[in-house]
Design a protein around this nucleic acid. Structure first.
Lengths: 144, 144
DNA sequence: CCTTGACCTCAACCATGCTCGAGGTTCTAC
DNA sequence: GTAGAACCTCGAGCATGGTTGAGGTCAAGG
């Protein structure tokens, strides 16, 4: 089989749109060689990169964070299983933390059902929500 | 104490920006009376509504979904604890589902560390990610 | 040769969830 | 009655994660 893949092939195999591949490339998440005429050619490892991108997105990471993680991969060679393992280990911890937060939020929600305290400072739910909000995107808490 | 609150007061107490309140109102998530001169006046229940909005956002709901949930609240009267309980019960289930998905994703991630299968169709991780992607925002999967 | 599909670039657009600024009014306190 | 804070509307702008379309090139088959 051919070693190099065209955008269309990658799109089909990875289940993403061609435009998304262009976008990822523009954002520095994937790279391509070009044929003399300017068409993109990808090594097979791009499929794994894209799979990893999708998994990380599902885990709640932004493309920026994924890009930063990718920046720790070796430039010179195709990343090995070990390289990927390092990334996924970090993300697993992050996922665990996120699961912990959501679980807490759910439990507080359960405990607070009908308690009427939702607008009060003492409510664990409000505070849980605030804590969660802190690591959200954008500066939402303008209260100093 | 006064029964009605100005935007600034609500913003301070709820910990959101005035602009966010304007925005929520434009989106139909909260409502206000107006003074003769056009200034907004809020009933105290707006504080709870905003608290609920923040909790629901932390749980991963969009404003659109929150708005739809709010639409089930009674128009005529201030919502009771029971009304809010109905909402939160639904969201609790939704949270449980999301937690289940993330937990599965994390476990697959753990199982797959270094396995090298990430780009293959058989990988549970890839499929888990695909499943998760389906209910994400926007039409991402263009593959028919 | 010529059509057809795949590819290229670049700019514009979409949704979400807001913020910021301009330009102007109102309220509160001294 | 006047300063300054708080309020108003409306439009533009920002970040994220892409899609869509125009206008043009390239490659493969008949």
């Amino acid at each position: 089989m051919r070693r190099e893949l065209s955008v269309g092939e990658v799109a089909r195999r990875a289940g993403v749109a061609v435009s998304a591949l262009h976008f990822y490339e523009a954002e520095g998440l994937i790279r391509s060689q070009r044929t003399p005429s300017g068409h993109r050619r990808y090594g097979r490892d791009v499929l794994r990169r894209i799979a990893v991108i999708r998994v990380a997105q599902a885990a709640g990471l932004s493309l920026r964070e994924i890009e930063q993680a990718f920046a720790t991969l070796p430039e010179a060679r195709t990343p090995t299983a070990k390289d990927w393992a390092r990334l996924s280990a970090g993300w697993r911890d992050l996922l665990s933390e996120r699961i912990r937060q959501l679980t807490r939020l759910r439990d507080d929600l359960t405990g607070c059902i009908g308690c009427g305290c939702l607008s009060l400072d003492q409510c664990p739910l409000r505070n849980a929500a605030d804590r969660l909000g802190e690591d959200g995107a954008g500066a939402r808490l303008l209260v100093e």
